[in-house]
């Protein structure tokens, strides 16, 4: 019941779904339609797991007064405030200028600027890394460096002004050697995914069972 049935569900579900792809019969299409209809509903509940563990971690920190525990309130308050606000003003979920609401305000004017700025910090760090770590120490490193510089110049208007060959060579690198390298990686990843799919379907890979019960 605890391990065998879930493993059976995986195997039956997996094989059924592979078969339905190759058998476009009415029955298989109906099963497929139900499946795609129901699964998003089931998976919507998975969000509760994330919210639950976030709550557990931060309430634990607050209870134990761990280092920087005060900041945990900054996680927990908006975590529960947002759904409450959305419930009070259901219309606010859709945003828009005509119906300003606190819910939409918090997303647009707190979440968006913070997240966008956090990502933009990387511009500063990549500049620093370019100065400190990007060295032409070997022939291969030099190739990488030259390829990067040509592509960087090729992608901006000033590269075009410095010489037509910058964008042309940059595009050539992207369209041929870059493509070759990325295709090899894609094939490798593709085979890896297929192998993992089969391992999960046939119960060879069972890590997903986790430690819940035996």
């Amino acid at each position: 019941m605890k391990r065998t049935v879930p493993l059976m569900i995986v195997m039956v579900g997996g094989i059924l779904m592979i078969l339905q792809y190759f058998i476009p019969h009415q029955i298989s299409q109906t099963i497929f339609a139900y499946y795609t209809d129901w699964t998003p509903i089931i998976l919507a509940f998975a969000l509760v797991l994330g919210v639950g563990s976030l709550t557990r971690i931060h309430s634990h920190k607050i209870r134990r007064k761990s280092k920087n525990w005060q900041y945990s309130w900054a996680v927990l308050i908006p975590l529960y405030l947002m759904p409450v606000l959305a419930h009070i003003w259901p219309g606010s979920l859709s945003g828009g200028m005509d119906s300003p609401s606190i819910f939409h305000f918090i997303f647009m004017h707190v979440q968006v600027p913070i997240q966008a700025t956090m990502f933009s910090l990387l511009a500063f760090y990549i500049a620093s890394a370019a100065f400190r770590a990007f060295r032409a120490k070997s022939a291969l490193a030099t190739v990488l460096l030259l390829s990067a510089i040509i592509v960087m110049l090729g992608q901006v208007p000033i590269g075009e002004l410095l010489g037509k060959w910058f964008p042309q060579t940059g595009l050539w690198i992207l369209r041929y050697p870059n493509l070759a390298a990325k295709r090899a990686i894609m094939l490798g990843v593709g085979f890896g995914m297929l192998a993992t799919n089969l391992k999960i379907i046939f119960g060879v890979e069972r890590n997903w069972l986790g430690g819940a019960g035996k």
Binding site: A127, A130, F131, F134, Q155, V156, I158
Partner: peptide, 20 residues
Amino acid sequence: GMDVQSAAHIFIILLIIMGN
């Protein structure tokens, strides 16, 4: 934004050259 992108790329390339 593309003007800024040009200037920033030149600056980073200069950083790479100076670092090396």
